[in-house]
């Protein structure tokens, strides 16, 4: 075992490049160094203040990859409907907030936002504008309502399987589109 080690060490000495470091060569040829066998690693170290190393860390962090944009993801029904849920909710709540605050400030600005005048104003619009406005409000309403049921089911820990999520997603798309059209055209 010892003989093998000695052979290994001397092989290493032989393979080492003599021109690299004169001091190393001298040291490795000294007989006392053979059995103590120091390991040499030619790593350059630098003395560095904490602020210097901090600066290096900052430089490296600047080169970390940033989050890619949504467009790199394959369009899939779960995440698209999730985004749509927030968008439709914001549209509905935005309309709700705008109406509520407008009704409060209406007397100050001389607007008449009573239900009678609003109904009269809306009734005087052309049919296409009426249907378009109704669709623009009805679809967010139906979608957010049906998708909300889906979310409540998930919150109870149900219908979580991937295939179920995809199927229920398409069901919500179909139901909300049909019911929105019905509300806009026939009600």
């Amino acid at each position: 075992m010892l003989a093998q080690r000695v052979a290994q060490q001397s092989l290493r000495r032989l393979a080492a490049t003599p021109s690299r470091n004169a001091a190393l060569l001298k040291f490795s040829l000294t007989p006392t160094a053979i059995l103590t066998s120091p390991q040499f690693r030619q790593v350059a170290t630098q003395k560095m203040t904490p602020t210097d190393s901090y600066q290096i860390l900052v430089e490296q962090r600047k080169k970390r990859p940033t989050s890619p944009h949504l467009t790199i993801y394959e369009p899939q029904i779960p995440w698209i409907l999730s985004a749509l849920n927030r968008i439709t909710g914001s549209v509905l709540s935005g309309a709700f907030y705008i109406f509520g605050s407008a009704y409060l400030v209406a007397p100050l600005l001389g607007w008449n936002l009573s239900s009678v005048s609003m109904a009269a104003a809306f009734g005087s619009w052309p049919v296409i504008a009426k249907v378009a406005t109704k669709l623009l409000l009805a679809f967010p309403f139906t979608f957010h309502s049906f998708n909300g049921l889906r979310h409540l089911a998930w919150d109870m820990g149900k219908a979580f399987k991937n295939q179920t999520v995809i199927k229920s997603g398409w069901a919500v798309v179909g139901l909300s589109t049909v019911s929105a059209l019905a509300l806009a055209l026939f009600v």
Binding site: R61, P65, I72
Partner: peptide
């Protein structure tokens, strides 16, 4: 080395480290 292309939304802001790394 990256599976997807680099398409950053915004360039990263000046980074800082709170405490040690």
């Amino acid at each position: 080395f990256h599976a997807t292309g680099r398409r950053p939304i915004l360039p990263p802001l000046p980074q800082s480290v709170n405490g040690t790394a």
